[in-house]
Design a protein around this nucleic acid. Structure first.
Length: 287
DNA sequence: GAGATTTGACCCCC
DNA sequence: GGGGGTCAAATCTC
């Protein structure tokens, strides 16, 4: 049963991704090609229905079927360690987001306005990219046990898995709730609307296009869709990786038409993202 | 000097 | 025994 539930969540995640891509494709489509646009819309709504079906078949009643600690937990016999640490893994609410990052300000969305402290990074078997582990900065001062894991997906270098485990019990709790229920966008319409406001977005660095499905206690995914960022903006945010002085190159040839990261220079990009969460924190605060 | 990050090591579960 | 999650000392940054 656990396996089925896990498959359901994977299926839901995949479908959500497909839906996001369909909407993005629609947004990029030539408006004159009515038939193609209709097809994209039909595809998106069909996937929508599929997601609902998947979720009804695999109700999200389990906290975290995908948890590697899905067994009977641990803790007993964990001499010299915090027993609670292992026991808590078992029943913690787990929320997964998948975040597509295609521009600098997009990466700000990877953060959630909360204070996280990185406490570890591991290479995951079979994964191209390491997984970074963060916990609430107030873990010790306020006993907040919220943690999150961030890992770049194998298939799409611009897509990040962000898994939240546990809830904030610190003063950030309300902020966390707000962040995790960030206003979802409707999809293609909103994509197009935002596309038309490109200039305004470039000046404000605020606008992002998001679509999000958040379920407490399950692992839905929520692709964030973004658009391009001008080179000068990239420069201002990443002077050390932008083409101007650099060893990291941004390009605009990503399939979604967004700013991508040259695969040859992903390491600095990764390093920055994983090693400077505080950067995104400040970006969020500036919004 | 305080706080954050890095990274090797440890521990539990499968 | 291996993989994943966490700890904690060393190191870094401001």
């Amino acid at each position: 049963m656990v396996e089925l539930r896990g498959e359901g969540q994977t299926l839901t995640s995949e479908l959500a991704y497909v839906r996001a891509m369909a909407r993005e494709l629609e947004a990029k489509m030539d408006p004159d090609k009515v038939a193609a646009m209709e097809l994209c819309r039909a595809l998106a709504s069909s996937v929508d229905r599929s997601i609902r079906l998947a979720m009804s078949c695999f109700p999200p009643d389990s906290q975290h079927a995908g948890s590697p600690r899905g067994g009977d937990g641990g803790g007993a016999g964990n001499a010299g360690r915090d027993d609670a640490t292992f026991k808590k893994r078992k029943g913690m609410a787990k929320v997964r987001r998948q975040v597509r990052v295609t521009s600098v300000q997009d990466m700000a969305r990877l953060d959630d306005g909360l204070s996280w402290r990185k406490y570890g990074q591991k290479d995951i078997l079979g994964a191209k990219y390491p997984r970074a582990y963060f916990r609430c900065t107030h873990r010790h001062t306020q006993g907040c046990n919220a943690t999150k894991q961030v890992q770049r997906t194998d298939g799409d270098p611009l897509l990040f898995d962000v898994v939240y485990i546990g809830e904030h019990t610190c003063g950030q709790a309300s902020a966390a709730a707000a962040a995790q229920t960030a206003p979802p966008l409707a999809g293609a319409e909103s994509v197009q609307q935002h596309a038309g406001q490109e200039q305004q977005r470039q000046s404000s660095l605020l606008a992002v296009e998001t679509e999000e499905i958040i379920h407490q206690g399950v692992e839905p995914m929520a692709p964030f869709l973004f658009t391009t960022t001008p080179a000068d903006v990239v420069d201002s945010y990443f002077p050390f990786i932008s083409p101007a002085n650099s060893d990291c190159q941004f390009s605009s040839d990503f399939s979604a038409g967004s700013v991508g990261v040259d695969m040859d220079h992903e390491a600095p990009f990764d390093d920055f993202f994983f090693n400077h969460p505080e950067f995104f924190q400040s970006e969020i605060q500036n919004l």
